[in-house]
Simulated assay, not measured.
Amino acid sequence: MATVEHVVPVAEGVDLWVEERGDPAAPVVLLVMGANASGLTWPEELVDRLARRYRVVRYDHRDTGRSSRAFDERPYALRDLAGDAVRVLDALGVERAHVVGMSMGGVLVQLLLLDAPQRLRSATVFATAALGAGLADTTGAGELPGPAPELLQLWQELGAERDEDAELAWRVEHWRVLNGPDAPFDPEEFRELERRVAAHSGTWRSPTAHALADPSGLERGAELAAVGVPVLVVEAPADPVNPPPHARHLAEVVGSARLVTVPGMGHALPRSVLGPLADALEEHVDAVEAGDRPVASAGPYRDVSSGPRTFVPVEEVAGALRPLGDGKADELRRTLDEHVDTDVEDPFERHAALERGGLGDEGDEGDEAAAPEPPHHRAR
């Protein structure tokens, strides 16, 4: 299938490497990778499978892969990387996309849900933590578990000077720990991945800029309750970075989220988890494209949501109560207050209305954005 590469300017002196694959007329799936990781970290097998049905876009964050390495001269905050994702969509002429984020990429997707919801048709996040939790907890006051001690020890060695063989060995060991104990780990699979990333990047030097970037502005977890874009949270039960119950916590604080789990998955993407993960992604995207609510599946992953949320318009509740006597009505009102959200409209219906143009996007009036500079591109 056709693959096209672009160079997209996102800030003064900062260009991003961007790749798209698949039918240009298909729904767009934007893949957002984690900290200090090139877009090539997304496995080719996963990208190829998704590209059979969607227009798949992946890119190198600043200071990774073939993108500009300018942190020393132009420091930035982690939150700025979320804006980069929007600029990638602008450069490719994409109005809305299904956005998928892993690890720090999942944190960036949450920022997009808050700051640019009109650009997201859906969101999927995994191996990540809610804003204000885990590694996004900049106050240190959170109660959720942190990364495994073995991993913290390895991170102390990030960016150390090593020759090529030693660097490759360190990266494979890092992936072994990230993979967790449950999913099969093939060292050669990850050696090959890192050789591709190094060849793509033109260096074996480990990126470290994101570990040094300003983390402020990530303490926004309370705002996620108002999200109306359909969100899928994929739990990685063996994740040593964001272990359970991080995924469930995230699904509970997001107003429109559904939770599924891929058994055995950790903080890596070995071949053994790609099938179940792709199944979950495709089901979510296809349901949103069809205008349906995503439902539980009998696939190789498990839907572990606590149950579907019930959204009841206030008018319907009032009409249902009228025929009852005062005592029964009061009792039912108390029950509804405890178990049913009578004030919030169905987020999936609101999102469908946005897709139909039936609801205006807040903040659009009078907001004249400059036309993005067109990307340079080449096919390969």
Results as ranks from 00 to 15, higher is better:
Trp42Val: 08
Leu259Trp: 09
Val14Met: 11
Pro294Asp: 00
Ala236Asn: 03
Asp279Thr: 15
Val340Ile: 14
Val273Gly: 03
Ser305Pro: 13
Arg55Leu: 14
Ala97Asn: 06
Phe185Trp: 14
Phe311Gln: 04
Gly217Glu: 03
Ala352Val: 08
Gly325Asn: 01
Pro117Asp: 00
Ala247Pro: 01
Leu332Val: 09
Leu224Tyr: 10
Met102Ser: 13
Asp346Phe: 09
Gly221Ala: 06
Pro149Phe: 01
Glu173Cys: 05
Leu108Phe: 14
Leu274Ala: 12
Met104Glu: 15
Ala51Met: 15
Val14Phe: 03
Gly291Phe: 10
Asp186Thr: 07
Gly202Cys: 04
Pro300Gly: 12
Glu188Met: 08
Val4Leu: 05
Leu108Gly: 13
Leu114Arg: 02
Asp137Met: 11
Asn36Lys: 06
Glu188Gln: 14
Glu161Met: 14
Gly327Cys: 06
Ser272Trp: 11
Asp330Gln: 09
Glu19Lys: 08
Gly140Ala: 12
Gly358Cys: 06
Trp175Gly: 04
Glu45Arg: 14
Pro207Arg: 06
Gly358Asp: 13
Pro117Gly: 00
Gly180Pro: 00
Ala320Ser: 10
Ala353Phe: 03
Val88Thr: 06
Glu167Tyr: 11
Gly357Glu: 05
Val314Arg: 15
Arg74Lys: 13
Thr64Pro: 03
Glu167Ser: 10
Ala116Cys: 07
Pro181Ile: 01
Arg195Val: 06
Gly83Met: 09
Gly146Glu: 08
Ala236Val: 05
Val4Gly: 00
Gly105Pro: 14
Glu164Lys: 10
Arg74Asn: 14
Pro145Tyr: 13
Gly360Asn: 10
Asp286His: 07
Thr342Glu: 07
Thr124Pro: 11
Glu20Thr: 05
Asp367Glu: 15
Asp303Arg: 01
Ala77Met: 04
Ser67Glu: 09
Gly266Trp: 09
Leu81Thr: 07
Arg205Asn: 12
Ser38Gly: 10
Val100Thr: 07
Leu151Trp: 04
Tyr76Glu: 03
Arg220Trp: 05
Arg96Thr: 02
Pro149Arg: 01
Asp84Thr: 09
Leu89Asp: 11
Glu73Trp: 12
Val172Gln: 00
Ala123Pro: 11
Glu157Gly: 04
Arg66Ala: 07
Ala238Val: 03
Leu40Val: 14
Asp337Cys: 08
Ala370Phe: 12
Leu259Ser: 04
Glu157Leu: 12
Ser306Trp: 13
His249Asp: 08
Pro230Val: 00
